[in-house]
Amino acid sequence: MHEMGIVLHLAKTLDETAEQEQLTKIGRVVLQVGEVSGIMTDLFTDAWDYFKGRHPVLTESTLVLETIPAVTWCDNCKQTYETVKYGRECPYCHSGETWLLQGNECVIKEIEAE
């Protein structure tokens, strides 16, 4: 259900882009998805295949997903670590004063179109 909502917004943004740029056909769509964005890529691709049939400009498009690794910053010892491996607590100094630098994104990087 969550993936369906994101696909709806993606399709809307692409429809708007097509109108602005006067595009008739969109080919490759490169989407960057953060490792901890909570998006299940399999479900996302299924939802995309369902919706692209309903948007004429997207019918022949292909979705390319790129993963953005999740990185957390520790404000106590001033270094970064892998979020997925260690979670919220810094593996070096065990501080909880940490925050996510990247990995929560869902960004449309680029599209091929005519």
Partner: peptide
């Protein structure tokens, strides 16, 4: 086909 760089978050239209 031409390449268009967007770098837009998926929720940009919602925002």
């Amino acid at each position: 086909m031409r390449l268009i760089t967007l770098n837009a978050t998926v929720t940009a239209s919602n925002d």
